[in-house]
Design a protein around this nucleic acid. Structure first.
Length: 453
RNA sequence: UCCUCAGUAGCUCAAUGGUAGAGCAUCCGGCUGUUAACCGGAGGGUUGUAGGUUCGAGUCCUACCUGAGGAGCCA
């Protein structure tokens, strides 16, 4: 990595470097530019824990060996002040990270007064009010690094498989699926809605390019108030022409396994910082267990499961309805791998899903449920490719026909079976990182009660 | 929309209906290897808001506000 350094800060004699690569500078003089993470004083010794975005480094100032003004600056500098330290790097097992700097000089660029987030425990409301500063904390830093790596892995996965990135619009004229509550906004003298899915716009592109995906923000105005919901979240949605449900299951399985492997390969230090049980991620291998909705429903109807639901005040499972939170826990708790549940009842799923030719009451769809109670991470289906059937479904759902004319066109001009799925980035990141709250898996969370910062 | 819980110092939390407390942070002093350092000292309060009960309310009652967790809905 080549640091970008303004000419005014360059020095011919001392190299400016990053903490991530500090081991390569053992025994040499370097300059580190960053912020003060923490400070510990002991008489004639001051330990400065400096962070630069790539890691943490302990710089040690020892009184007789540094000039009095340098030592005094080290004593006075406050938490999160921006600074530049210069000194020699040496291996020392007593230092966090294994290397430390024997400090020779220090430049404080700006003194931070009363940094609000002290190195102690804080409540979620306080931390979310200070999200713009909380990003500097080690766990949040590790989490967002993992998110970044997973987003890069998603793009790499599709690029390597010849998918074309097709960005869907965020401003849309009408409801895509007719179910969710949408955010409404003024669009000159008309109304527009923030997109809740890119899928419908992706299907036409799929007929142009064969394999496509979109990756962007998605908006839901539902008043959900749980740790598994955000009003603004990121979703990646692939769509494949000439694909059936079995092709889709294989793609989703490959996708999940590849992303988890990438996190294990590139984010070990971050997963360790988050105290993630890595052995659980190492068990995420193909094949994933697959069962149908009817098989899953049979499990939930067992007397011992029904009595457990009553004991936990969970609403009882009714055959033909969708699974609740308790039901998802039951279906995933004994498994180490994600479970793929297929062929839900047609009437509880979206209007565009292809019915199973063997049983038209069941849709050719899949939900992938993550282990450890993280819930649905992937949802997808084969799409209806017959024009008349799709027209009938739009009418049955009471959707405005005029708004779907372009969508029906795809079934008039060279229609083929096709399939796709959507994956919620924050849910996936939460599962991989092993965190409790979805809102920490996005830099600036938007929830029912939060629009700041 | 419904159910449950919470709101006390900058932060995290104590306080049988009877004088408002501690740790961290901040400031001052001490210490040559600290690991959320430690030791001594100082400053810091309209107990979410408005009513009510009581000789007396942080504590009990009512309403409201704010937040959290869950349900439903969904990724």
């Amino acid at each position: 990595m080549t640091p970008i350094i303004p000419a005014s800060l360059r020095s011919a004699s001392v190299q400016t470097t990053t903490i991530r690569t500090i081991g390569a500078h053992d025994g040499r003089d370097v300059r580190i530019r960053g912020w003060l993470y923490n400070k510990r004083e002991k008489g004639k010794l001051v330990f400065l824990i400096v962070r630069d975005g790539t890691g943490y480094l302990q710089a040690v100032a020892f009184q007789p060996e540094v000039p009095p003004d340098v030592f005094e600056t080290c004593q006075k500098v406050t938490q999160e002040s921006s600074l530049e330290v210069r000194g020699s790097i040496r291996k020392d097992d007593r230092a966090p990270g294994g290397y430390e700097m024997k400090l020779q000089s220090i430049t404080v660029h700006q003194v931070a007064q009363d940094y609000p987030i002290s190195p102690k425990e804080h409540g979620p409301d306080f931390l979310l009010d200070h999200r713009h500063l909380w990003l500097r904390s080690s766990k949040q830093h590790a989490l967002l690094k993992i998110r970044s790596e997973i987003c890069q892995a998603i793009r790499d996965f599709f690029y390597e498989r010849d998918f074309v990135l097709i960005d869907s619009p965020i401003l849309t004229p009408a409801a895509c699926e007719g179910t969710s509550t949408l955010f409404e906004t003024d669009y000159f003298d008309r109304k527009a809605y923030l997109s809740q899915s890119g899928q419908l716009y992706l299907e036409p592109a799929c007929m142009a390019f064969g394999r496509v995906y979109c990756f962007g923000p998605t908006f839901r105005a539902e008043k959900s108030k749980t740790r598994r919901h955000l009003t603004e979240f990121w979703m990646v949605e692939p769509e494949v022409a000439y694909a059936d449900l079995d092709d889709l299951l294989d793609l989703a399985e490959d996708f999940v396994v590849t992303l988890v492997a990438r996190a294990l390969d590139r984010c070990r230090p971050e997963l360790t910082t988050l105290e993630r049980d890595i052995t659980r991620l190492e068990r995420i291998q193909k094949p994933f267990p697959r069962l149908t909705y009817d098989e899953a429903a049979a499990v939930l109807m067992r007397p011992e499961i029904q009595s457990r639901a009553r004991g936990q005040d969970a609403p009882p499972f009714v055959p033909g309805s969708d699974f609740g939170a308790f039901d998802e826990t039951v279906l995933t708790e004994t498994l180490e791998r994600p479970v793929m549940i297929t062929r839900y009842p047609t009437k509880i799923k979206a209007f565009y899903m292809q019915p199973d030719p063997q049983n038209p009451d069941r849709a050719l769809c899949v939900d992938v449920l993550a282990p450890e109670g993280y819930g649905e991470i992937v949802g997808g289906s084969q799409r209806i490719h017959d024009h008349d059937l799709l027209l009938r479904r739009i009418q049955e759902h009471g959707l405005p026909l005029e708004a779907f004319r372009w969508y029906l066109d795809i079934r008039r001009y060279g229609s083929v079976p096709h399939a796709g799925f959507g994956m919620g980035i924050e849910r996936f990141v939460s599962w991989v990182a092993g965190i409790h709250h979805l809102r920490e898996a996005i830099p600036y969370p938007r929830t029912l009660n939060r629009l700041y910062p």
